[in-house]
Design a protein around this nucleic acid. Structure first.
Length: 489
RNA sequence: GGGCCUGUAGCUCAGUUGGAAGAGCAGUGGACUUUUAAUCCAUUGGUCCAGGGUUCGAGUCCCUGCGGGCCUACCA
């Protein structure tokens, strides 16, 4: 069996035999680890004792140095680390320290001191077990490196790796800063359904589930868009939602089937207004949370400082792919050219999809610094307003950074008649074999028919932004519990 | 789906031509009253992923399966 766990259970029983609960319901705590450290650091350099002050500190035992008749322990709580020192002549029942293992939570009563090496320390006069752990934390020096265990058992990763604690702390602060930015600009945060009768608003396959009470299938949302625009119709001029969406696709460095998306919709704005807002939001959040707009990512140095480059879809293809779409204006000619260039694409791909494949091949990997790629082909943008003077393009941009797409925005299509035509074109693509084409959404059309004001909309993958902001090369390192295959018994 | 890699103690990892399964950390016992990857002495701990095969002999070679990672493809 697990001999090490059995030893720890025996120690818990030994504590009970002494009349103390190894899992007490309440604890004495007067100071965090960080608070004690700060108190001692504030002392004059020659002061070593603070006997007038008594503190109760708590935390997990993460270090232990037995010194005979003195024992040093390192405790870690949410604020940081604090060293405690027990000496045989100032702790009754000194032998009881043998009941403390790595990973246990204990409380220590004592006075702050400074050791001869200058280390802030609590000189303990009493200790209590707060939680007996049955397993040791990961090995203290080499830590926990196995990516699978780090992700499946993130609690071990968090115990072992400071960088992991940092990444997810940053994530939390970034999410809060984004909310603060939008709230301060008068946006209203809303919540829309995750379970939907039809999953729309993006080109992606959905997950399907079943609603027992109604005997109907439901789809997990693949975007937030269509419901948020209904709210603009209803009169909420500025709305946003930050939430989980689900796309039934593979796993990869940039892909997790559930990820966090933020979408904003602002009435009386267009895609240029939205671009200005997004620049300000992302660079401002970076500055506020991390104190910089420069980040190391996959060997590059990425600057999120404003302004970001703007280049049109067509110009970018000319620049990075030496491909002039004007010379290949239809499926036949562009398809032939891409075949000649050995760019893969599905046989069912329409013209817009071919353009997108060319962009993915030539442009996307080169867009390391944040770049707005402007004015997309209309076929792959069924919810965006067409560009005045060019019926083949729409007012849409995607934001790229680090060589991948991180966000998407358009001047929203609000002509209900044209929107119906666009849906019908999508249905034709679907019939031709494109299983990611947009579905007709009659209720959404009915909403548009009541009038949606001119609106600028925006969506961004929070996880991908976090990859840049934390310097993590894969999306799995910025998601606490990324998807994995089920472990088979 | 394709390619490459990988599975050895609780953790991190070695293991040579195929010849008695190892180290550090953790654990246990001991020394040490200012250490901080403490140090020192001793010591417990193994279904070498699983199943087959080759062989006098397999952690090592072969086959199959299972698990996992990375790259790639589809996809944001």
């Amino acid at each position: 069996m697990d001999e090490l766990a059995a030893q720890r259970i025996a120690k818990a029983e030994a504590l009970r035999a002494r009349g103390t609960d190894p899992y007490p319901p309440r604890v004495a705590r007067s100071h965090t680890a960080d608070a004690v450290n700060q108190i001692v650091e504030a002392w004059p350099p020659d002061r070593t004792e603070g006997a007038d002050l008594e503190v109760d500190v708590t935390g997990r035992v993460v270090g232990r140095r037995d010194q005979g008749k003195a024992t040093f322990l390192d405790l870690r709580d949410g604020s940081g680390r604090i060293q405690v020192l027990f000496r045989q002549n100032s702790l009754a029942d000194y032998d009881s320290l043998k009941l403390i293992d790595f990973g246990d939570f204990i409380g220590v009563h004592g006075s702050p001191i400074r050791t001869r090496t200058g280390q802030p320390t609590v000189a303990g006069t009493a200790w209590t077990m707060l939680t007996k752990a049955l397993h040791a934390p990961p090995e203290k020096y080499h830590g926990l490196a196995d990516a699978e265990i780090r992700q499946r058992r993130r609690y071990l990763d968090l115990m072992a790796n400071e960088e992991t604690r940092r990444v997810f702390t940053v994530r939390s602060k970034v999410v809060a800063a984004i909310r603060r930015f939008l709230d301060d600009r008068g946006f209203l945060e809303v919540e829309t359904p995750v379970l939907q009768e039809a999953a729309g608003g993006a080109a992606a396959r959905p997950f399907v589930t079943h609603f027992n009470a109604l005997g109907e299938d439901r789809f997990l949302r693949i975007s937030l868009e269509l419901h948020l625009k209904r709210l603009v119709v209803g009169g909420f001029d500025k709305v946003y939602e930050m939430g989980r969406i689900f796309r039934n696709e593979g796993l990869g460095a940039k892909y997790n089937p559930e990820f966090t998306m933020i979408e904003t919709y602002e009435a009386y704005a267009d895609y240029n207004d939205v671009a200005a807002m997004v620049e300000e939001m992302v660079s401002g959040v970076a500055e506020n949370v991390l104190g910089t707009t420069t980040f190391a990512f996959r060997g590059h140095e990425i600057s999120l400082a404003r302004p970001w480059r703007r280049v049109t879809f067509h110009d970018a293809l000319r620049e990075y792919g030496a491909l002039d779409l004007d010379a290949f204006p239809d499926v036949a000619t562009l398809g032939a050219e891409l075949r000649r260039r050995k760019v893969d694409f599905a046989p069912t791909a329409g013209y817009g999809k071919l353009c997108d494949e060319a962009m993915s091949a030539y442009v996307e990997p080169n867009l390391i610094q944040p770049t707005f790629l402007m004015d997309y082909p209309i076929e792959i943008s069924p919810l965006a307003k067409s560009k005045p003077g060019n019926p083949r393009l729409v007012e849409r941009w995607e934001i790229f950074m680090g060589g991948f797409e991180a966000g998407n925005a358009y001047t929203e299509l609000n002509d209900p008649v044209e929107q119906r035509v666009r849906f019908e074109e999508q249905l034709a693509l679907k019939a031709a074999g494109d299983d990611e084409a947009e579905l007709m959404d009659e209720d959404f059309l009915f909403a548009l028919e009541h009038g949606m004001p001119p609106t600028g909309g925006f969506g961004m993958g929070i996880d991908r932004l976090l990859m840049i902001l934390t310097g993590q090369p894969t999306i799995r390192e910025v998601i606490l519990f990324p998807q994995h295959k089920t472990v088979k018994e």
